[in-house]
C-alpha cells in the first residue's frame, strides 16, 4: 500500500451563478494509497460528489491539482479514464438496452474486441448475479439490479481505481449487503476503491481509512479506529464512540439538528 492511487492538493471548485460565485469545494487535500478502500463522508451538499466528479474528469477543476493512478487529471484526462471505473450516485444506465448489451458496449468502448467484450460481459454478469436477467431491458430492473449492473459496467476494463458515489443510496438492506460484498471482492482483487457515502455504518464496515468533508473542506481524516480513539480521548469518554458520533462532532451537528433536517426516504 505504498504508491498513491489518488492525490489531490488544494482542490477547489467554484460555480458562477446569477447570485455570484459559489464555493462547492474549498481546497481539499487527499491521499489514497493503492489497494485501499477509502471512505469519503459528509452531509448533503458538503462537496462529496463534486470532488468525485473532479477526480473522474467529469468536472473541471477551478484550482489545485489532482492525480489519479499517477496521472494528472487535467493534463491527460483520457489516460485517467482508461484507468478508472465510475459508478455515480445516479446509476448511469440506458434503460432501452439489455444488461448484456450495456456491458458489451462499455467493454468495446474501452478497447475490447467483440469476442472479448462478450466474454467479459458473461463474467461480470455472473459476478453481480444478473445472468438470468442479462437479456432483459434495463428499464425492467429493480433498483438493486440497476446498482449491481452499474457496478459491473464500471469494472469492464479491470480499473486500477474504482469510484463509487453513494452506491447503496435507496437500496433495501439485502441489496446493500450485496453491494458491500461486491466492494470487498473487488478490493481483494487489488482495485483501490474511493467510496462516498452518507451511511456511517457502511464506512465503518468497508473502509480502511476515511475523510469527512463539510462545507467544502476536509474536517477529519484517518482510520475509523483512530478517529474514534481521538474523540474518546478528547472528550474523555468511558467507551469508544460510534462513527456517527465522530461524524456529528466533526461536522458540528447535533443529533437534534440532524433529526430536524429533511431526510431522503428510500422507496
Amino acid at each position: 500500500m505504498n504508491a498513491l492511487a489518488i492525490e489531490a492538493e488544494g482542490l477547489v471548485k467554484q460555480y458562477r451563478g446569477r447570485t455570484g460565485t459559489v464555493d462547492a469545494v474549498r481546497g481539499v487535500d487527499l491521499s489514497v494509497a493503492a489497494g485501499e478502500v477509502f471512505g469519503f463522508l459528509g452531509p448533503n451538499g458538503a462537496g462529496k460528489s463534486t470532488t468525485v466528479r473532479m477526480l473522474t474528469t467529469l468536472l473541471s477543476i477551478t484550482s489545485g491539482t489532482a492525480r489519479v493512478a499517477g496521472i494528472d487529471v487535467t493534463a491527460d484526462p483520457d489516460a485517467v479514464r482508461r484507468r478508472i471505473g465510475v459508478a455515480l450516485q445516479e446509476a448511469g444506465l440506458d434503460p432501452r438496452q439489455t444488461g448484456r448489451e450495456l456491458i458489451e458496449l462499455q467493454a468495446r468502448l474501452f478497447g475490447s474486441s467483440p469476442a472479448e467484450a462478450a466474454g467479459r460481459a458473461e463474467e461480470l454478469l455472473e459476478l453481480v448475479e444478473l445472468t438470468d436477467a442479462a437479456d432483459r431491458r434495463i428499464k425492467g430492473y429493480s433498483g438493486g439490479m440497476k446498482r449491481r449492473l452499474d457496478l459491473a459496467s464500471a469494472l469492464v476494463h479491470q480499473p486500477e481505481v474504482l469510484f463509487l458515489d453513494e452506491p447503496t443510496t435507496g437500496l433495501d438492506p439485502a441489496s446493500r449487503l450485496g453491494v458491500w460484498d461486491e466492494v470487498r471482492r473487488i478490493n481483494q482483487r487489488g482495485t483501490t476503491v474511493f467510496l462516498t457515502t452518507q451511511y456511517l455504518e457502511e464506512a465503518d464496515q468497508l473502509c480502511h481509512r476515511l475523510a469527512i468533508i463539510d462545507d467544502g473542506r476536509i474536517v477529519r481524516s484517518g482510520t475509523p479506529a483512530s478517529l474514534k480513539a481521538e474523540l474518546r480521548a478528547r472528550l474523555a469518554l468511558s467507551s469508544d464512540p460510534t462513527l456517527d458520533e465522530v461524524f456529528l462532532d466533526a461536522t458540528g451537528r447535533t443529533r437534534e439538528r440532524v433529526a430536524g433536517e429533511v431526510q431522503e426516504v428510500g422507496a
Binding site: T57, V86, L93, D94, P95, L109
Partner: peptide, 12 residues
C-alpha cells in the same frame, strides 16, 4: 439518467 456521464467518464 446519468448515462451521458458514464460515457464521458470512458476514454471515448
Amino acid at each position: 439518467g446519468g448515462y451521458f456521464d458514464k460515457l464521458r467518464a470512458a476514454p471515448v
